[in-house]
């Protein structure tokens, strides 16, 4: 008697070529590395008091290029503002008065950066409040991202040693408050 024939034969499994496997793993690793770099950048916190402040570059509305590297040894008062920001108006005149107070003192520099603002409105704001210290746009929001500002106004005082000394979230309430803060860092 003939026994039924069993059919256990299957088509041989085709394997991927080695180069394809290596390429796939290389792509995967590259992609993971990119995610890691992005995450590291995202997770790195803001500059806190005591941290060295990276170099700040800005160009004023008048076209003057300013670099914090050229201001080494001086106290820098860096104010973020915007023309659409109502609380910024509360401290605008006070900041100008403080600037005038230190104008003859070559150890203190005031800088203003307009955050996500349009140039015509920024210029109008500066004119409205009679602000004369160097101001410019925060181009590509680089500096505000560096400090991870949460809004405007925010003011950062950088010491003569290049480290962050003081952070003010929200508007200063008086000229004296600004002067007191700056005075404590003048060496």
């Amino acid at each position: 008697m003939e026994t039924p024939q069993t059919h256990s034969e299957t088509a041989p499994a085709r394997k991927l070529p080695m180069w394809a496997v290596v390429l796939a793993f290389a792509l995967l690793l590259g992609f993971l590395a990119l995610i890691a770099v992005g995450l590291r950048r995202t997770m790195s916190g803001p500059i806190v008091v005591g941290d060295p402040v990276p170099e700040i570059n800005m160009t004023t509305f008048d076209g003057q290029a300013i670099s914090s590297a050229d201001l080494a040894g001086k106290v820098i008062v860096l104010n973020f503002w915007a023309s659409w920001c109502k609380p910024c108006e509360q401290e605008a005149r006070e900041l100008e008065e403080a600037f005038q107070f230190y104008k003859e003192n070559d150890k203190v520099v005031f800088l203003g950066l307009a955050y996500v603002d349009t140039e015509p409105k920024s210029r109008g704001y500066l004119e409205q409040f009679g602000i004369t210290y160097p101001n410019g746009p925060d181009l590509r929001t680089k500096v505000s991202q560096m400090f991870r500002i949460r809004g405007v106004p925010e003011t950062y005082i950088i010491g003569s040693d290049g480290t962050l000394k003081f952070v003010k979230i929200g508007p200063f309430t008086s000229t004296q408050e600004i002067i007191s803060a700056v005075d404590s860092f003048i060496e």
Binding site: S83, W84, D117, T118, P120, K121
Partner: peptide, 10 residues
């Protein structure tokens, strides 16, 4: 927001 309104004006 006012910021966006200013951008639209621009």
């Amino acid at each position: 927001t006012q910021a966006c309104q200013e951008w639209r004006d621009l």
